[in-house]
Every structure is written in structure tokens, then in C-alpha cells.
Design a protein around this nucleic acid. Sequence first.
RNA 1: GGAGAGCUGUCCGAGUGGUCGAAGGAGCACGAUUGGAAAUCGUGUGUGCGGUCAACGCCGUACCGAGGGUUCGAAUCCCUCGCUCUCCGCCA
Length: 426
Amino acid sequence: MLDIKVLRQDMAGVREKLSKRNEDISALDHVEELDTQRRELIQQTEELKSRRNTVSQEISEMKKEKKDASDVIAEMKKVSAEIKKLDEELREIEEKLDYALLTIPNIPHEDVPVGEDEEDNVEIRAWGEKPSFSFEKKAHWDLVTELDIADFERASKVTGSRFVFYKGLGARLERALINFMMDTHQDRHGYTEVLPPYMVNRDSMTGTGQLPKFEEDAFQIQEEDYFLIPTAEVPVTNMHRDEILTNEDLPKAYTAYSACFRSEAGSAGRDTRGLIRQHQFNKVELVRFTKPEDSYAELETLTSHAETILQELGLPYRVLNMCTGDLGFTAAKKYDIEVWLPSYEDYKEISSCSNFESFQARRANIRFKREAKSKTEFVHTLNGSGLAVGRTVAAIIENYQQEDGSVAVPDVLQPYMGGRTHIGRD
RNA sequence: GGAGAGCUGUCCGAGUGGUCGAAGGAGCACGAUUGGAAAUCGUGUGUGCGGUCAACGCCGUACCGAGGGUUCGAAUCCCUCGCUCUCCGCCA
């Protein structure tokens, strides 16, 4: 959510910046008028309330002195009715204004390259050697089926399409990766481990920006008005919703493993094979709460933490600075990390690291005070995948495949795999 | 799922219709005292919104779990919901 005061002061400037995004910003059109109406109504209603408070006091005095107050009471009755009417109007205006503000995307940071779509994202760096195979390489969906470490058919029988059973060393690999990632972030990168709820309420989804615009992307528990989390970002960021943190609290850094649930509405036909796009997948998430002046340095730090995992696993990747057209709704700046997938002969997103500045903090009302008597300020929030586990499995399977159909286990994972060096070799 | 109790400021806790943003205490901050500290004393100590100001600030308004209602006036009375605790049931 943007600051209404900024919109008041520089509507044209904000409109200019937002127009470079690939987002609907028509809500901007109504903001000025609604804001003006709102302030006029507030002044009217507060003036009446002030009067009512004064006169109510006088009525109290009169009653004590046994004077007749019926005339004044009758008059106040009208005033109260008027207040009620104006308050109702105000409530409607504020509802519209809030909705408009909640549907306006974040302002891109000045470092963000201007561009239309994913073609215009800018590669910042690339790491690692892409493997070359002296044999015919296979896609991970064929390898996992041949190795009998994942079962897509039975998952679609039991649930539906875009679900999977991991089996045997496949399940073990998934679990090993989760543990390796969590251990690394907690022990080496200084994050506090959190295991969050997998369902959240509507306020939480609104706080991080999934709602109100993207309700169709989420799975909903209708009876409770709960949502299955699309990422641990939602519960973890909302942990501090409606809180005022102290100077010493910041920065806060959490890492959380969770299953993630996405309806993938609008993605029909994309990545239909394999582990790349599932309705349920595992992810290790990094979340940071920082002071405004630190957030861009912390974005670099957070991104490097995600990169560490890929480097330790020996998976080639590149880092992209996402352009204005591909930034998404909530981010002010975003790096995507893409891992090399031999079957795609291309890089595929495996992590997305964003600085939201105060966009989420304003929605979720997460503030801090520099000193006891300082004014409250909004914190900056950041998050990134560290990493998407299913896609990491796919990348390992494909990049580490051997001529005999087995898959080598990266060195750092072997302790987590009971010392095994290969999947598919006895 | 059933029955009961509760939800007040950073914390504890008083307050059952008007003078209550809210007693009292603790904590915290600043000041006094001290060689220094403890103790003591004094002062201060929430948030949002609107207006005003160059600014410190000032004025108004709202907030006692959330939302509605009654009333000239609600922390206080009524209704709905949420959460916490206790007991019963069920359950991993």
C-alpha cells in the first residue's frame, strides 16, 4: 500500500512511475476525489462530535442542578442522528478509498530497469559451469519415474493433476534439501527458524499483498475464511502485524520451511510435466524486517544467502534484476535467481528475492520506533526463497544425472542422505 | 462439540451510564540527591485520523478484543463474532 500523503503531494510523479509497470493502475483515478471527500466528511462529523461532547457535559451539569434539559436533549438527538448519517457516508468513502489503495502496486525503485516483460530483465551475474553430457540427457520427469523415486500418476489418482508422491530416496532427497537449507540459514546466516501455520486468515493475505487482487490464485477454506499459504512469506511476515518494534529488534531475520499451495490459475498448459509447477510444493523462505535505510543492502545480503545454497549444491545459476514490467505487484525491487535446467536448455526461476520497502509494512501495520519517544515509522520487509525445494530436486536430478541412469548426490547432501553418493546405484 | 470465566495503556490491575485516555502500582525516560550506585523524591511516559504550524508544538476527534445496537451521553447496558483460560466430550 502506498502512502496517501505521497499520492496527495505528487500524484503525477507517482502515476508516471507506476505506468512503467505491467499492472492495472486505474484505481489511481479515484484516489484524489475520495481523499478529498473523506477529509471534508471528517471535518464535518468531528465538528458535530465536538459539539455533542460539550453539550452532553452541560446536560450532566443541568441534571445535577435539577434543571430541565429536555430541549437540549431533543436538539442533541438530531445532532446524533446527523453524526450517524455522516459517519455512514464516511465509512463508505473510506471503504472505497482503502480498496483503491490496496489495489495500487508498489512504486519501482530507481535501480529497476524499465522494460515491458521478462525479455527486458537484466542479467546481473551468472555462476557455475553448465554440464555437458557425453550421453543422451534425460528430463527429470523421466529420470525420477525410471528411478521410482516419484509417482505422478498415483498422485493424480489420489488428488488430481499437479500433485506428486515422492518415494524412497526421492522423498529422502527432498527432506535432505530442506534440512540442508534450514541448517545453513540458521547456523551460518543467522536466521531464526520458524515453522509456521499453513493456513492464514484474510487479514494476513491482505497484509502481504496476495489479497484483494489475487484471490483466485489461492486455495481457500471457505467455512473459516482461511487460505492455504502460497508461501511462508505470508505467515512469517504477518507474525509482526500490528506491532511496534523497537530499534533493538531490527533487523529481524527468519527462515521458515513450509509446504506452499497455489492454484496456478492462469498457468494452464505451462510446465505441465515434472516437478516444476505443482499445486503443492515445499519451499524454504527467508524473511527480513529492517530499518528503511538498510533495506537495499539487506536485499543484497539476502540474495547472497539464497545463492550460497546453489553454490554449495554446485548448481549453475544466474541472477536477474527484474524489469518494471515483470516486477510483480508488491516488490519495489526484485532479483530472480534462475537455475540451469538441462531439459529446458534454459534457466528456470528457483528463487525470488524482493525488497518491498514499506509496501507490506503499511498494509500489515508493522512499525518501529528508533527511541522510546520517537515517532513510529514503518519497517521495510524483504523476503526470498532459499530455495524452492521441488525445483532444486529437479535441478539436481538433471544436472547430476549419470550415463547409467543414476544420479550423483552433491557432496554437501551426502550426510543428509545417510552417506549415499548416488541415487539408483546399490 | 457442550458448560462456565475472562479479554482495559509496555506490564499488573481498578473502574457497572456523565467530571474516564482512563485510579493505583510496576517498568521505562529525564531531573534532584550521591564520590559512585542502590534507595528516595519530582516530572514525564500510547496509537490512528483531521486541522493548524517553518518547526517544537497546539487544537479537535477516535480507540478499554472486533463489529453492531440502546442512550442527549457507553470501558460501563444489549446483540453477534473472535481469542484466552477451566471443566466435560472427541482426538494425533
